[in-house]
Design a protein around this nucleic acid. Sequence first.
DNA 1: ATTTATTAATTGACAACGTCAATTGACGCC
DNA 2: GGCGTCAATTGACGTTGTCAATTAATAAAT
Lengths: 212, 212
Amino acid sequence: MPKILTPNDVLQFRQRLCDLALKAFAEQGVEGMSLRGLAAAAGCSRTTPYRYFKNKADILAAVRQTQFQRMADENEAAALKEDDPDKRLTALARSYVSFAMANPDAYRVMFSVNQQDEQRYPELVKQIKRAQQPMKTAVNEALAKGTLHGDPANIVHILWAGLHGIVSLHLSDKLHLGRGIDELAEVMIRSLSRAVAAKPSKQASTRRVRED
Amino acid sequence: MPKILTPNDVLQFRQRLCDLALKAFAEQGVEGMSLRGLAAAAGCSRTTPYRYFKNKADILAAVRQTQFQRMADENEAAALKEDDPDKRLTALARSYVSFAMANPDAYRVMFSVNQQDEQRYPELVKQIKRAQQPMKTAVNEALAKGTLHGDPANIVHILWAGLHGIVSLHLSDKLHLGRGIDELAEVMIRSLSRAVAAKPSKQASTRRVRED
DNA sequence: ATTTATTAATTGACAACGTCAATTGACGCC
DNA sequence: GGCGTCAATTGACGTTGTCAATTAATAAAT
Protein backbone atom coordinates (compact mmCIF):
# COMPACT_ATOMS: atom_id res chain seq x y z
CA MET A 1 0.00 0.00 0.00
CA PRO A 2 2.13 2.86 -1.23
CA LYS A 3 1.08 6.26 -0.11
CA ILE A 4 0.79 7.96 -3.44
CA LEU A 5 -0.69 6.13 -6.35
CA THR A 6 1.16 6.86 -9.55
CA PRO A 7 -1.14 7.22 -12.55
CA ASN A 8 0.36 3.97 -13.71
CA ASP A 9 -0.72 2.20 -10.55
CA VAL A 10 -4.22 3.50 -11.04
CA LEU A 11 -4.38 2.34 -14.63
CA GLN A 12 -2.97 -1.03 -13.67
CA PHE A 13 -5.50 -1.66 -10.95
CA ARG A 14 -8.33 -0.45 -13.14
CA GLN A 15 -7.23 -2.81 -15.86
CA ARG A 16 -6.97 -5.66 -13.38
CA LEU A 17 -10.48 -5.03 -12.15
CA CYS A 18 -11.76 -4.87 -15.71
CA ASP A 19 -10.17 -8.21 -16.54
CA LEU A 20 -11.68 -9.81 -13.47
CA ALA A 21 -15.00 -8.22 -14.30
CA LEU A 22 -15.01 -9.63 -17.81
CA LYS A 23 -14.15 -13.05 -16.47
CA ALA A 24 -16.95 -12.86 -13.93
CA PHE A 25 -19.32 -11.72 -16.65
CA ALA A 26 -18.29 -14.61 -18.85
CA GLU A 27 -18.90 -17.11 -16.10
CA GLN A 28 -22.08 -15.82 -14.53
CA GLY A 29 -23.50 -13.02 -16.63
CA VAL A 30 -24.09 -9.42 -15.62
CA GLU A 31 -25.81 -10.30 -12.40
CA GLY A 32 -22.97 -12.54 -11.32
CA MET A 33 -20.52 -9.73 -11.81
CA SER A 34 -20.73 -8.31 -8.30
CA LEU A 35 -18.54 -5.61 -6.90
CA ARG A 36 -17.91 -7.60 -3.77
CA GLY A 37 -16.99 -10.64 -5.78
CA LEU A 38 -14.58 -8.59 -7.85
CA ALA A 39 -12.99 -7.16 -4.74
CA ALA A 40 -12.58 -10.63 -3.29
CA ALA A 41 -11.03 -11.88 -6.50
CA ALA A 42 -8.70 -8.90 -6.53
CA GLY A 43 -7.76 -9.60 -2.93
CA CYS A 44 -8.85 -6.26 -1.55
CA SER A 45 -11.69 -5.05 0.58
CA ARG A 46 -15.21 -4.49 -0.70
CA THR A 47 -15.03 -0.76 -1.08
CA THR A 48 -11.53 -0.41 -2.42
CA PRO A 49 -12.76 -0.47 -6.04
CA TYR A 50 -14.66 2.71 -5.25
CA ARG A 51 -11.35 4.54 -5.27
CA TYR A 52 -10.86 3.56 -8.88
CA PHE A 53 -14.41 3.63 -10.19
CA LYS A 54 -17.37 5.73 -9.22
CA ASN A 55 -19.77 2.81 -9.10
CA LYS A 56 -20.71 -0.44 -10.77
CA ALA A 57 -22.00 1.18 -13.94
CA ASP A 58 -18.63 2.87 -14.25
CA ILE A 59 -16.82 -0.46 -14.13
CA LEU A 60 -19.15 -1.91 -16.70
CA ALA A 61 -18.55 1.04 -18.98
CA ALA A 62 -14.80 0.62 -18.57
CA VAL A 63 -15.00 -3.07 -19.41
CA ARG A 64 -17.02 -2.35 -22.51
CA GLN A 65 -14.73 0.47 -23.55
CA THR A 66 -11.71 -1.83 -23.28
CA GLN A 67 -13.32 -4.43 -25.48
CA PHE A 68 -14.47 -1.91 -28.07
CA GLN A 69 -10.92 -0.71 -28.13
CA ARG A 70 -9.65 -4.20 -28.88
CA MET A 71 -12.21 -4.57 -31.63
CA ALA A 72 -11.24 -1.22 -33.08
CA ASP A 73 -7.61 -2.30 -33.09
CA GLU A 74 -8.41 -5.48 -34.96
CA ASN A 75 -10.61 -3.68 -37.44
CA GLU A 76 -7.96 -1.12 -38.18
CA ALA A 77 -5.39 -3.85 -38.62
CA ALA A 78 -7.67 -5.78 -40.96
CA ALA A 79 -8.29 -2.68 -43.04
CA LEU A 80 -4.58 -2.16 -43.50
CA LYS A 81 -4.09 -5.62 -44.97
CA GLU A 82 -6.15 -4.98 -48.08
CA ASP A 83 -5.71 -2.25 -50.63
CA ASP A 84 -8.72 -2.71 -52.81
CA PRO A 85 -11.82 -1.13 -51.20
CA ASP A 86 -14.05 -4.07 -52.07
CA LYS A 87 -11.66 -6.65 -50.70
CA ARG A 88 -11.21 -4.43 -47.72
CA LEU A 89 -14.91 -4.44 -47.04
CA THR A 90 -14.97 -8.21 -47.15
CA ALA A 91 -11.94 -8.39 -44.92
CA LEU A 92 -13.57 -6.04 -42.44
CA ALA A 93 -16.70 -8.13 -42.41
CA ARG A 94 -14.65 -11.25 -41.72
CA SER A 95 -12.72 -9.42 -39.05
CA TYR A 96 -15.97 -8.44 -37.38
CA VAL A 97 -17.23 -11.99 -37.24
CA SER A 98 -13.85 -13.36 -36.23
CA PHE A 99 -13.60 -11.04 -33.30
CA ALA A 100 -17.04 -12.00 -32.08
CA MET A 101 -16.35 -15.71 -32.43
CA ALA A 102 -12.97 -15.48 -30.76
CA ASN A 103 -14.32 -13.33 -27.91
CA PRO A 104 -17.97 -14.19 -27.46
CA ASP A 105 -18.12 -12.83 -23.93
CA ALA A 106 -16.51 -9.60 -24.99
CA TYR A 107 -19.06 -9.29 -27.76
CA ARG A 108 -21.88 -9.97 -25.35
CA VAL A 109 -20.76 -7.37 -22.89
CA MET A 110 -20.30 -4.91 -25.72
CA PHE A 111 -23.64 -5.34 -27.43
CA SER A 112 -26.14 -7.24 -25.38
CA VAL A 113 -25.63 -5.42 -22.12
CA ASN A 114 -27.97 -2.51 -22.50
CA GLN A 115 -26.26 0.29 -20.69
CA GLN A 116 -28.93 2.89 -20.18
CA ASP A 117 -26.81 6.03 -20.07
CA GLU A 118 -24.11 4.99 -22.48
CA GLN A 119 -23.80 8.52 -23.80
CA ARG A 120 -22.49 9.67 -20.46
CA TYR A 121 -19.22 7.80 -21.01
CA PRO A 122 -17.41 9.78 -23.70
CA GLU A 123 -14.43 7.43 -23.79
CA LEU A 124 -16.73 4.51 -24.42
CA VAL A 125 -18.53 6.38 -27.17
CA LYS A 126 -15.19 7.28 -28.68
CA GLN A 127 -14.05 3.67 -28.95
CA ILE A 128 -17.39 2.61 -30.35
CA LYS A 129 -17.02 5.17 -33.10
CA ARG A 130 -13.44 4.16 -33.67
CA ALA A 131 -14.54 0.56 -34.15
CA GLN A 132 -16.96 1.61 -36.89
CA GLN A 133 -14.62 3.98 -38.62
CA PRO A 134 -12.74 1.54 -40.87
CA MET A 135 -15.96 0.28 -42.36
CA LYS A 136 -17.24 3.80 -42.96
CA THR A 137 -14.03 4.72 -44.69
CA ALA A 138 -13.98 1.61 -46.83
CA VAL A 139 -17.55 2.21 -47.91
CA ASN A 140 -16.74 5.75 -48.89
CA GLU A 141 -13.78 4.59 -50.90
CA ALA A 142 -15.79 1.92 -52.66
CA LEU A 143 -18.39 4.54 -53.44
CA ALA A 144 -15.73 6.81 -54.87
CA LYS A 145 -14.31 3.98 -56.90
CA GLY A 146 -17.78 3.26 -58.21
CA THR A 147 -18.17 -0.34 -57.08
CA LEU A 148 -20.86 0.65 -54.60
CA HIS A 149 -23.92 2.78 -55.09
CA GLY A 150 -26.39 4.30 -52.71
CA ASP A 151 -26.53 6.27 -49.53
CA PRO A 152 -23.28 5.74 -47.61
CA ALA A 153 -24.86 5.81 -44.18
CA ASN A 154 -27.49 3.34 -45.29
CA ILE A 155 -24.87 1.01 -46.69
CA VAL A 156 -22.82 1.05 -43.53
CA HIS A 157 -25.89 0.43 -41.44
CA ILE A 158 -26.99 -2.44 -43.64
CA LEU A 159 -23.59 -4.07 -43.48
CA TRP A 160 -23.24 -3.65 -39.79
CA ALA A 161 -26.77 -4.78 -39.06
CA GLY A 162 -26.35 -7.90 -41.16
CA LEU A 163 -23.16 -8.88 -39.41
CA HIS A 164 -24.44 -7.99 -35.97
CA GLY A 165 -27.63 -9.89 -36.61
CA ILE A 166 -25.82 -13.09 -37.51
CA VAL A 167 -23.40 -12.88 -34.64
CA SER A 168 -25.91 -11.76 -32.08
CA LEU A 169 -28.51 -14.40 -32.89
CA HIS A 170 -25.84 -17.04 -32.92
CA LEU A 171 -24.41 -16.00 -29.58
CA SER A 172 -27.81 -16.13 -27.95
CA ASP A 173 -28.43 -19.56 -29.45
CA LYS A 174 -31.33 -18.45 -31.57
CA LEU A 175 -29.90 -20.16 -34.64
CA HIS A 176 -29.44 -23.86 -34.18
CA LEU A 177 -27.14 -24.61 -37.03
CA GLY A 178 -25.51 -27.92 -37.62
CA ARG A 179 -22.43 -26.74 -39.41
CA GLY A 180 -20.50 -23.94 -37.81
CA ILE A 181 -21.33 -20.31 -38.13
CA ASP A 182 -18.48 -19.58 -40.49
CA GLU A 183 -20.32 -20.81 -43.52
CA LEU A 184 -23.41 -18.82 -42.65
CA ALA A 185 -21.29 -15.76 -42.05
CA GLU A 186 -19.74 -16.16 -45.48
CA VAL A 187 -23.18 -16.42 -47.04
CA MET A 188 -24.23 -13.28 -45.23
CA ILE A 189 -21.13 -11.45 -46.34
CA ARG A 190 -21.69 -12.47 -49.96
CA SER A 191 -25.34 -11.50 -49.69
CA LEU A 192 -24.51 -8.12 -48.25
CA SER A 193 -21.88 -7.51 -50.90
CA ARG A 194 -24.31 -8.25 -53.67
CA ALA A 195 -27.11 -6.29 -52.05
CA VAL A 196 -24.94 -3.27 -51.54
CA ALA A 197 -23.19 -3.39 -54.89
CA ALA A 198 -26.44 -3.28 -56.82
CA LYS A 199 -27.57 0.01 -58.23
CA PRO A 200 -30.18 1.59 -56.00
CA SER A 201 -33.71 1.93 -57.28
CA LYS A 202 -34.69 5.42 -56.21
CA GLN A 203 -32.59 6.79 -53.37
CA ALA A 204 -30.21 9.65 -52.98
CA SER A 205 -26.99 8.19 -54.18
CA THR A 206 -23.52 9.45 -53.42
CA ARG A 207 -23.71 11.75 -50.46
CA ARG A 208 -20.64 11.41 -48.30
CA VAL A 209 -20.97 9.77 -44.94
CA ARG A 210 -20.12 11.79 -41.89
CA GLU A 211 -16.73 10.86 -40.52
CA ASP A 212 -16.67 12.61 -37.17
CA MET B 1 -58.86 -13.86 -0.88
CA PRO B 2 -61.06 -16.69 -2.06
CA LYS B 3 -60.30 -20.05 -0.58
CA ILE B 4 -59.87 -22.06 -3.76
CA LEU B 5 -58.20 -20.53 -6.77
CA THR B 6 -59.90 -21.46 -9.99
CA PRO B 7 -57.49 -22.05 -12.87
CA ASN B 8 -58.87 -18.86 -14.30
CA ASP B 9 -57.90 -16.90 -11.22
CA VAL B 10 -54.40 -18.28 -11.47
CA LEU B 11 -54.07 -17.35 -15.12
CA GLN B 12 -55.46 -13.91 -14.44
CA PHE B 13 -53.05 -13.16 -11.66
CA ARG B 14 -50.13 -14.53 -13.62
CA GLN B 15 -51.08 -12.31 -16.53
CA ARG B 16 -51.42 -9.34 -14.24
CA LEU B 17 -47.97 -9.92 -12.82
CA CYS B 18 -46.53 -10.31 -16.31
CA ASP B 19 -48.05 -7.02 -17.40
CA LEU B 20 -46.66 -5.24 -14.36
CA ALA B 21 -43.30 -6.91 -14.95
CA LEU B 22 -43.13 -5.71 -18.54
CA LYS B 23 -44.02 -2.22 -17.44
CA ALA B 24 -41.34 -2.27 -14.76
CA PHE B 25 -38.85 -3.60 -17.30
CA ALA B 26 -39.77 -0.83 -19.72
CA GLU B 27 -39.25 1.82 -17.09
CA GLN B 28 -36.15 0.60 -15.32
CA GLY B 29 -34.68 -2.35 -17.18
CA VAL B 30 -34.17 -5.87 -15.92
CA GLU B 31 -32.57 -4.79 -12.69
CA GLY B 32 -35.46 -2.49 -11.87
CA MET B 33 -37.92 -5.31 -12.30
CA SER B 34 -37.89 -6.52 -8.71
CA LEU B 35 -40.18 -9.12 -7.23
CA ARG B 36 -40.89 -6.92 -4.26
CA GLY B 37 -41.70 -4.01 -6.51
CA LEU B 38 -44.04 -6.15 -8.57
CA ALA B 39 -45.79 -7.37 -5.44
CA ALA B 40 -46.21 -3.82 -4.23
CA ALA B 41 -47.59 -2.76 -7.59
CA ALA B 42 -49.95 -5.70 -7.55
CA GLY B 43 -51.06 -4.77 -4.06
CA CYS B 44 -50.09 -8.02 -2.41
CA SER B 45 -47.36 -9.10 -0.08
CA ARG B 46 -43.79 -9.80 -1.16
CA THR B 47 -44.01 -13.55 -1.30
CA THR B 48 -47.46 -13.95 -2.78
CA PRO B 49 -46.05 -14.13 -6.33
CA TYR B 50 -44.23 -17.28 -5.25
CA ARG B 51 -47.56 -19.09 -5.31
CA TYR B 52 -47.86 -18.33 -9.00
CA PHE B 53 -44.24 -18.49 -10.14
CA LYS B 54 -41.38 -20.56 -8.91
CA ASN B 55 -38.92 -17.66 -8.87
CA LYS B 56 -37.87 -14.53 -10.68
CA ALA B 57 -36.45 -16.34 -13.69
CA ASP B 58 -39.83 -18.01 -14.06
CA ILE B 59 -41.59 -14.67 -14.22
CA LEU B 60 -39.12 -13.40 -16.77
CA ALA B 61 -39.66 -16.47 -18.90
CA ALA B 62 -43.41 -16.00 -18.67
CA VAL B 63 -43.12 -12.37 -19.73
CA ARG B 64 -40.97 -13.29 -22.68
CA GLN B 65 -43.24 -16.13 -23.65
CA THR B 66 -46.24 -13.81 -23.65
CA GLN B 67 -44.52 -11.36 -25.94
CA PHE B 68 -43.25 -14.02 -28.32
CA GLN B 69 -46.81 -15.21 -28.47
CA ARG B 70 -48.01 -11.76 -29.49
CA MET B 71 -45.32 -11.57 -32.14
CA ALA B 72 -46.25 -15.00 -33.43
CA ASP B 73 -49.87 -13.90 -33.65
CA GLU B 74 -48.96 -10.83 -35.68
CA ASN B 75 -46.66 -12.78 -37.95
CA GLU B 76 -49.29 -15.38 -38.65
CA ALA B 77 -51.83 -12.67 -39.36
CA ALA B 78 -49.42 -10.89 -41.71
CA ALA B 79 -48.72 -14.11 -43.57
CA LEU B 80 -52.41 -14.64 -44.17
CA LYS B 81 -52.81 -11.27 -45.85
CA GLU B 82 -50.62 -12.08 -48.84
CA ASP B 83 -50.97 -14.96 -51.23
CA ASP B 84 -47.83 -14.64 -53.29
CA PRO B 85 -44.82 -16.12 -51.47
CA ASP B 86 -42.54 -13.24 -52.39
CA LYS B 87 -44.98 -10.59 -51.29
CA ARG B 88 -45.59 -12.64 -48.20
CA LEU B 89 -41.91 -12.59 -47.37
CA THR B 90 -41.84 -8.83 -47.67
CA ALA B 91 -44.98 -8.53 -45.62
CA LEU B 92 -43.46 -10.73 -42.93
CA ALA B 93 -40.33 -8.65 -42.86
CA ARG B 94 -42.38 -5.49 -42.46
CA SER B 95 -44.45 -7.15 -39.78
CA TYR B 96 -41.28 -8.04 -37.90
CA VAL B 97 -40.01 -4.48 -37.92
CA SER B 98 -43.44 -3.05 -37.17
CA PHE B 99 -43.82 -5.21 -34.11
CA ALA B 100 -40.43 -4.19 -32.80
CA MET B 101 -41.09 -0.49 -33.38
CA ALA B 102 -44.54 -0.63 -31.86
CA ASN B 103 -43.34 -2.61 -28.85
CA PRO B 104 -39.71 -1.74 -28.27
CA ASP B 105 -39.72 -2.90 -24.68
CA ALA B 106 -41.31 -6.17 -25.62
CA TYR B 107 -38.62 -6.66 -28.25
CA ARG B 108 -35.92 -5.86 -25.76
CA VAL B 109 -37.17 -8.31 -23.19
CA MET B 110 -37.52 -10.93 -25.90
CA PHE B 111 -34.10 -10.61 -27.47
CA SER B 112 -31.69 -8.61 -25.42
CA VAL B 113 -32.36 -10.24 -22.08
CA ASN B 114 -30.03 -13.19 -22.20
CA GLN B 115 -31.84 -15.86 -20.29
CA GLN B 116 -29.22 -18.45 -19.51
CA ASP B 117 -31.39 -21.56 -19.29
CA GLU B 118 -33.95 -20.62 -21.88
CA GLN B 119 -34.23 -24.24 -23.02
CA ARG B 120 -35.70 -25.21 -19.67
CA TYR B 121 -38.91 -23.34 -20.48
CA PRO B 122 -40.62 -25.45 -23.13
CA GLU B 123 -43.59 -23.11 -23.50
CA LEU B 124 -41.24 -20.24 -24.21
CA VAL B 125 -39.30 -22.27 -26.74
CA LYS B 126 -42.57 -23.24 -28.36
CA GLN B 127 -43.68 -19.65 -28.88
CA ILE B 128 -40.26 -18.68 -30.19
CA LYS B 129 -40.51 -21.39 -32.81
CA ARG B 130 -44.06 -20.40 -33.61
CA ALA B 131 -42.91 -16.84 -34.23
CA GLN B 132 -40.36 -18.05 -36.78
CA GLN B 133 -42.63 -20.53 -38.50
CA PRO B 134 -44.39 -18.20 -40.95
CA MET B 135 -41.09 -17.02 -42.36
CA LYS B 136 -39.79 -20.56 -42.71
CA THR B 137 -42.93 -21.59 -44.52
CA ALA B 138 -42.89 -18.61 -46.84
CA VAL B 139 -39.26 -19.26 -47.73
CA ASN B 140 -40.03 -22.86 -48.52
CA GLU B 141 -42.91 -21.80 -50.74
CA ALA B 142 -40.81 -19.26 -52.56
CA LEU B 143 -38.19 -21.93 -53.08
CA ALA B 144 -40.81 -24.27 -54.47
CA LYS B 145 -42.13 -21.55 -56.73
CA GLY B 146 -38.58 -20.91 -57.91
CA THR B 147 -38.25 -17.26 -57.00
CA LEU B 148 -35.68 -18.12 -54.35
CA HIS B 149 -32.59 -20.26 -54.60
CA GLY B 150 -30.23 -21.64 -52.04
CA ASP B 151 -30.23 -23.42 -48.74
CA PRO B 152 -33.54 -22.77 -47.01
CA ALA B 153 -32.11 -22.64 -43.50
CA ASN B 154 -29.45 -20.23 -44.64
CA ILE B 155 -32.00 -17.99 -46.28
CA VAL B 156 -34.18 -17.87 -43.23
CA HIS B 157 -31.22 -17.12 -41.04
CA ILE B 158 -30.02 -14.38 -43.34
CA LEU B 159 -33.41 -12.75 -43.41
CA TRP B 160 -33.91 -12.95 -39.72
CA ALA B 161 -30.42 -11.78 -38.93
CA GLY B 162 -30.74 -8.78 -41.20
CA LEU B 163 -34.01 -7.71 -39.65
CA HIS B 164 -32.88 -8.41 -36.12
CA GLY B 165 -29.67 -6.54 -36.73
CA ILE B 166 -31.42 -3.41 -37.90
CA VAL B 167 -33.97 -3.45 -35.12
CA SER B 168 -31.56 -4.43 -32.41
CA LEU B 169 -28.92 -1.85 -33.26
CA HIS B 170 -31.59 0.81 -33.55
CA LEU B 171 -33.17 -0.06 -30.22
CA SER B 172 -29.84 0.16 -28.47
CA ASP B 173 -29.16 3.50 -30.13
CA LYS B 174 -26.16 2.26 -32.07
CA LEU B 175 -27.46 3.82 -35.29
CA HIS B 176 -27.92 7.53 -35.05
CA LEU B 177 -30.09 8.12 -38.04
CA GLY B 178 -31.66 11.40 -38.89
CA ARG B 179 -34.68 10.13 -40.72
CA GLY B 180 -36.68 7.41 -39.04
CA ILE B 181 -35.85 3.77 -39.13
CA ASP B 182 -38.63 2.90 -41.55
CA GLU B 183 -36.65 3.96 -44.58
CA LEU B 184 -33.60 2.03 -43.48
CA ALA B 185 -35.75 -1.00 -42.77
CA GLU B 186 -37.15 -0.79 -46.29
CA VAL B 187 -33.65 -0.62 -47.70
CA MET B 188 -32.68 -3.64 -45.66
CA ILE B 189 -35.74 -5.55 -46.82
CA ARG B 190 -35.00 -4.73 -50.46
CA SER B 191 -31.37 -5.69 -49.97
CA LEU B 192 -32.28 -8.98 -48.38
CA SER B 193 -34.78 -9.74 -51.12
CA ARG B 194 -32.21 -9.14 -53.81
CA ALA B 195 -29.51 -11.03 -51.93
CA VAL B 196 -31.68 -14.02 -51.36
CA ALA B 197 -33.29 -14.07 -54.79
CA ALA B 198 -29.94 -14.30 -56.56
CA LYS B 199 -28.75 -17.67 -57.72
CA PRO B 200 -26.26 -19.12 -55.29
CA SER B 201 -22.68 -19.54 -56.38
CA LYS B 202 -21.76 -22.97 -55.11
CA GLN B 203 -23.92 -24.17 -52.25
CA ALA B 204 -26.32 -27.05 -51.81
CA SER B 205 -29.49 -25.66 -53.25
CA THR B 206 -32.98 -26.86 -52.58
CA ARG B 207 -32.90 -28.99 -49.46
CA ARG B 208 -36.04 -28.48 -47.46
CA VAL B 209 -35.81 -26.61 -44.20
CA ARG B 210 -36.69 -28.47 -41.03
CA GLU B 211 -40.12 -27.48 -39.81
CA ASP B 212 -40.28 -29.14 -36.40
C1' DA C 1 13.68 11.85 14.46
C1' DT C 2 9.40 13.09 15.68
C1' DT C 3 5.34 15.20 14.42
C1' DT C 4 1.89 16.37 11.02
C1' DA C 5 -0.78 16.11 7.04
C1' DT C 6 -2.41 13.52 3.29
C1' DT C 7 -4.31 9.71 1.19
C1' DA C 8 -5.06 4.71 0.57
C1' DA C 9 -7.64 0.99 2.53
C1' DT C 10 -10.76 -1.11 5.82
C1' DT C 11 -14.66 -1.56 8.60
C1' DG C 12 -19.42 -0.42 9.96
C1' DA C 13 -23.81 0.44 8.64
C1' DC C 14 -28.16 0.74 5.89
C1' DA C 15 -31.60 -0.13 2.52
C1' DA C 16 -33.14 -3.18 -1.00
C1' DC C 17 -33.19 -7.58 -2.95
C1' DG C 18 -34.39 -12.95 -3.68
C1' DT C 19 -36.03 -16.59 -1.22
C1' DC C 20 -37.35 -20.05 2.44
C1' DA C 21 -39.74 -21.33 6.90
C1' DA C 22 -43.09 -20.49 10.06
C1' DT C 23 -47.35 -18.30 10.95
C1' DT C 24 -51.81 -16.39 10.30
C1' DG C 25 -56.23 -16.06 8.07
C1' DA C 26 -60.25 -17.50 5.56
C1' DC C 27 -63.33 -20.61 3.68
C1' DG C 28 -65.73 -25.39 2.48
C1' DC C 29 -67.22 -29.41 4.83
C1' DC C 30 -68.80 -32.67 8.36
C1' DG D 1 -69.18 -25.15 15.93
C1' DG D 2 -65.01 -27.32 14.95
C1' DC D 3 -61.69 -29.05 11.49
C1' DG D 4 -58.78 -29.48 7.61
C1' DT D 5 -57.07 -27.17 3.67
C1' DC D 6 -55.12 -23.82 1.11
C1' DA D 7 -54.08 -18.77 0.17
C1' DA D 8 -51.61 -15.01 2.06
C1' DT D 9 -48.65 -12.69 5.31
C1' DT D 10 -44.87 -12.09 8.27
C1' DG D 11 -40.24 -13.21 9.94
C1' DA D 12 -35.79 -14.19 8.95
C1' DC D 13 -31.23 -14.95 6.47
C1' DG D 14 -27.75 -14.13 3.25
C1' DT D 15 -26.23 -11.05 -0.50
C1' DT D 16 -25.83 -6.91 -2.94
C1' DG D 17 -24.53 -1.66 -3.93
C1' DT D 18 -23.05 2.19 -1.62
C1' DC D 19 -21.95 5.87 1.88
C1' DA D 20 -19.80 7.47 6.31
C1' DA D 21 -16.59 6.90 9.67
C1' DT D 22 -12.36 4.90 10.91
C1' DT D 23 -7.76 3.05 10.61
C1' DA D 24 -3.25 2.62 8.61
C1' DA D 25 0.64 4.05 6.14
C1' DT D 26 3.78 7.17 4.16
C1' DA D 27 5.52 11.79 2.30
C1' DA D 28 6.55 16.25 4.00
C1' DA D 29 7.73 19.51 7.66
C1' DT D 30 9.84 20.86 11.71
